[in-house]
Every structure is written in structure tokens, then in C-alpha cells.
Amino acid sequence: MIRKESLLTGWKGLTQVNGRVLIVDDDLALAEMLGIVLRNEGLEVSHVADGAGALGAFRDSRPDLVLLDVMLPGLDGMEVCRRIRAESGVPIVMLTARTDTVDVVVGLESGADDYVVKPFKPQELIARIRARLRRGDEPEPERLEIGDLVIDVAGHSVKRDGTALSLTPLEFDLLVALARKPWQVFTREVLLEQVWGYRHAGDTRLVNVHVQRLRSKIEHDPEHPEIVVTVRGVGYKAGPS
């Protein structure tokens, strides 16, 4: 009950976000239930039932967030995720019934920012969605330098020698979290809390996968990272600027 109170206040905060969510799920009952719960939170909800139509619906509705079921008829969730990611950095949260390492990692590697395992508690889903939408708040103008990268926090851009690097919002948040406190070592749990908004222990594989994705975009040699450095047995830190 305690949790409900605190979440309710959270939900009210979310009401102002007034985001648009696209639900891609073939289970109509679940989709309808999700719609009810999300509309209760003041979100605008649209629904598409199969993978093939997902991309078209995405282009039509221009959502702020996509809720994507992994197992879809037609085009499977991973492929849908990959195609959406190809044209947009929009936050994608996957709904999965399988928690096997391979499934989760493949899902994350196809570009999802986060995942929720069925059966999930509605509060948990709302918290995940809220964490991904909260980025709408205007940050203070801030300029960070890390390695040979220049980060403009307010402008959401990362540049190397004047050339902009294309990062998804999540990757950007991850990089900013690390770059704000260079030399400080972040455990995976701390990063989960700061970047993904998990209040309790989450799946640290989220961090691993996204650090790999981030490295593949910003490192000169992703095999020998210099900007996001692994501290064995502890976590990650930003390299020398």
C-alpha cells in the first residue's frame, strides 16, 4: 500500500507529461488492459496488433515511447525494434515472456532501451515508462568534455572534432551520467538507478548491453575502450578527458 501512495504521486507528475505511447501487441485483451491503465495515467495510447503494421503505425502516430511485444505475428519484435531504431531514437520498452539470457540480450541488442518481463505489475511498467519519458524536462545548459568528445547536454548532442555522433537518448543519458563525474566508478546498480530509474535491483545486463552499444558508437576501438572504461569487479567509469 505504501508503494501505491508513492507511485500515485508519481503518476500525477506523469499526467503532465501527456506523452503518446504506441502499444505493439497481438494479445488484444492485454493491449486493451494496457490501454486502460496507461490512459488512467493520462497518456495517449494507440495500438497495433501485428509486427508488419507496426512501422506504419509508428510513422503515423509519432509516439514518445513504444511498448513492443517480443513475440508478434508477421514481423517479430526484434525486427520491428531494429527498424524503428533505424529511423528514430525513440525510447523502446520491450514486453517479453522469456527471461532467458539470450532472449533478453538479443532484445536489448536490437535496440530496446529497457524490457519488462510478463507478468509485470502495472506500477512497475508505469515506472519504466515514466523513467523513459521524464527526459522531456529541460536540462540546464551544460557542456561536458570526455576524451575527445564534447557533450552539449541541453542540445542533446555529442561531437567529435565538430562532427555530431548519433546516440539514442538512453545512450546519451548513460554517457552524460558517466561524464559528469569522470574518475568516479559507477556500479551497474547505480547506473540502473540513475539512467533507467530502477529503484530496486534490476537486471545488470541492461547496463552491459548498452555500454557495449555506446562503445561501438563513441570508441575509436571498441575492443580497447578509452572513454567508457570497465573497472573489473566494480563497474564502469569515464576515461581521462
Binding site: D27, P119, F120, K121
Partner: peptide
């Protein structure tokens, strides 16, 4: 079982 259970879960919570 998971997908219907998710729906039931959300309905029950509501």
C-alpha cells in the same frame, strides 16, 4: 500463461 496472467494482474490491481 504469462500473457493472460499479465492482463489478470493488471485488472486485479485496478
Amino acid at each position: 500463461l504469462r500473457t493472460p496472467l499479465t492482463t489478470i494482474r493488471m485488472a486485479a490491481d485496478l
